[in-house]
């Protein structure tokens, strides 16, 4: 990580360690976290897509339809708010329990089967060793707490700060094209930066861009406040070119469609530079970093 970037805030009870990250990485890719062994976190969060998904929405283990498009996870450690419209989720540890145990929609489907999950993981001697190394203070106890803390630790290593745009910002000549540089200027001039602000191009706040006709009511579902109808969190734009389809419900099949739906009076010839700029936010090293990939070994043995 570049030295001029402050590290993310880590919850006091969730200190980072290599052992936690290693365990969290294995758990992230392990479909045994799902009730029937068919779906892992990585089943929906694919590294090559910036840890997003290529589908509009993703059904859960029982085929229940998804409700929202899978977000990418680049730089998720710095997000103050997690998911599209739930302000109560402010830590990765808490958020991780939603796909694991949630029922609106059912994703991994483990609610009510937690003891079976702990038993399943505990049957694996390597997992027992990994939990013991990662959580010596609880003698490697396998629980929702330790599982979620380990996965959160791994997610905090998903750092994408080496895109052409980043290298351009660090003074690398020719890192981005002339067209992309024009797109940078347009992005500011058209007011995109009002919401897509900061290093990750999100203000982590909720905004209404269009009426959703009651299909997914957005923030109001959690707050009950009428003014929160159709408000959704500004998505991070890191790797945005590879995280499609776009929009909170995946209803924008192309990046151009997603841009037009912001209704900002773009001229036709402004689309190409904006797109070039957004493509310059793709960190190819992040998409292929073997430290973030599915592990092929654990405890010195092939998985």
């Amino acid at each position: 990580m570049p030295s001029d970037i402050p590290p993310p805030i880590v919850p006091a009870d969730s200190a980072m360690s290599m052992a936690k990250v290693e365990l969290g990485r294995r758990l992230f890719y392990d479909p045994d976290l799902s009730v029937n062994g068919t779906l892992s976190c990585a089943g929906c969060h694919e590294q090559k897509r910036g840890f997003a998904d290529g589908n509009t929405m993703r059904p859960g283990v029982h085929g229940d339809p998804g409700r929202r498009n899978v977000p990418g996870l680049a730089n998720v450690a710095w997000r103050r708010r997690l998911t599209a419209a739930d302000p109560s989720l402010t830590t990765l540890e808490a958020q991780m329990l939603v796909p694991l145990l949630g029922d609106n929609p059912v994703e991994l489907g483990t609610r009510g089967k937690e003891a079976e999950l702990f038993r399943r993981l505990g049957n694996d001697a390597c997992y027992r060793r990994m939990f013991a190394r990662a959580f010596p203070e609880v003698k490697g106890h396998i629980s929702l707490d330790t599982i979620s803390h380990a996965i959160a630790a791994f997610e905090r290593t998903m750092i994408a700060l080496n895109s052409p745009f980043d290298r351009h910002g660090r003074g690398e000549i020719g890192a981005i094209s002339t067209e992309a540089r024009r797109g940078v200027a347009l992005f500011a001039a058209r007011g995109c930066v009002a919401c897509h602000a900061g290093r990750d191009f999100t203000d982590d706040d909720y905004h209404r861009l269009e009426k959703n006709m009651g299909r997914d009511r957005g923030l109001i579902e959690k707050t009950g406040r009428p003014e929160d109808e159709d408000r959704f969190r500004t998505p991070c734009l890191r790797n945005v070119a590879v995280t499609g389809p776009w929009w909170h419900d995946g209803s924008a099949p192309t990046l151009e469609d997603a841009i037009w739906r912001h209704v900002m009076g773009l001229a036709q010839d402004e689309m190409a530079p904006l797109r070039a700029f957004l493509e310059s936010l793709t960190d190819r090293t992040f998409l292929t970093d073997p430290r973030l990939a599915m592990p092929d070994r654990a405890c010195g043995r092939k998985l």
């Binding site: 479909p31 976290l33 029937n36 062994g37 068919t38 892992s40 990585a42 399943r120 599915m294």
Partner: peptide, 11 residues
């Protein structure tokens, strides 16, 4: 080949 999305122990 190891599947890109392997199943868990109970799949």
């Amino acid at each position: 080949l190891r599947p890109e999305k392997p199943g868990g122990s109970i799949s």
